[in-house]
Design a protein around this nucleic acid. Structure first.
Lengths: 176, 176
DNA sequence: GTCATGCCGCTACGTTATAACATGGCCCAA
DNA sequence: TTGGGCCATGTTATAACGTAGCGGCATGAC
């Protein structure tokens, strides 16, 4: 029990769910697209397009960048994955009935994880400001960088933490 | 009076202001950095790094990408410019005393303009959600794509508009 | 059957960003 | 006045991210 892969079981369930969703919409979740979605869902962190490409190739596929991007476009159109602009990377959508829904992301610079949140208060605040300006919003990107609860604790809690000896080492420096 | 350049006068004033600000902080707004800032402020729309590079070269400078990126890094560190993640482009900061201040951006897909807003309600909504999750935010990216007031009017107002005959032509398609 | 459509393979290229190393100026102290 | 530290910039090369466009092949409609 040195480390338990964080719930390997739901993966297949989520794929099945995605299949059903696409079927209901008349969209075709092909093997390729399903594989890409699987890799994204299996990743504990956001994945870049080229990382996906590499992983697909490791699994024996022989693809070029456009193929992966097309699959990603499809998955985003179905609301099954989100793109994180700050990271140029992709995450699975956490929503059960995904489509347009507005989402916000909290990106931990220490552990690299991205938490999706669907907070109406934020969406409403944005919508209200837009309305006040006569702006007709189509999509909102909300991405907050910082330290997640776990990393904030182990980082500031010097003198009692059992986890990391000197706080969260930056995940990918990612200067930007 | 066929077209009036939108306020050419404040440009120099803003540069002087930026200079003063940097001086106060002990930061050096060199000629290069000042030139880059000038180009960004002079642009009615967000500018990409390579567009800046081209314009600098047109003005006789001979630079490479890293030089521009370093200048941009400096200007961002001083809060004088912001980066728009959706566009991979940069805009001048509208704040008078710029630093960390949280900002939100409304990006018009029709005319390409970016409006900076500094709405405490949005910032607070984000902060509240973060706090609820134990997340320690460092920076928030809020970028809303849609139609600005002007373009929304001329686009939907078919039958009476005097401006554009068939609505706002998309600025840069920018698939993403 | 054959036709349209949608998906995918592939080549090639465009765009955005950074690593790594070299140079040059400025200030200060020895 | 020389040498060293520091910062900004120059230079080369390459990494990382993304797309245009064409052709072939399967599937389902008629």
């Amino acid at each position: 029990m040195t480390r338990q892969p964080p719930a390997p079981e739901p993966l297949e369930a989520r794929l099945v769910q995605a299949e059903a969703l696409c079927a209901r919409r008349g969209a075709r979740l092909t093997k390729l697209r399903r594989d890409v979605l699987g890799l994204i869902l299996a990743s504990p962190e956001p994945v870049g397009a080229y990382a996906l490409l590499d992983r697909m190739r490791e699994q024996g596929a022989s693809l070029q960048p456009p193929t992966v991007y097309r699959a990603l476009d499809f998955l985003m159109a179905q609301g099954l994955v989100h793109r994180l602009e700050r990271l140029n990377a992709f995450v699975g959508c956490h929503d059960d009935a995904p489509h347009d829904h507005a989402a916000q992301f909290f990106l931990c610079t220490a552990c690299g994880k991205a938490e999706e949140v669907d907070d109406p208060a934020i969406a409403e605040a944005v919508a209200a400001t837009a309305a006040r300006r006569g702006f007709a919003p189509l999509r909102a990107t909300v991405e907050v960088e910082g330290l997640c609860a776990g990393c904030a604790l182990s980082g500031s809690d010097r003198g009692g933490s059992s986890t990391s000896p000197d706080g969260p080492g930056p995940h990918r420096p990612h200067s930007h």
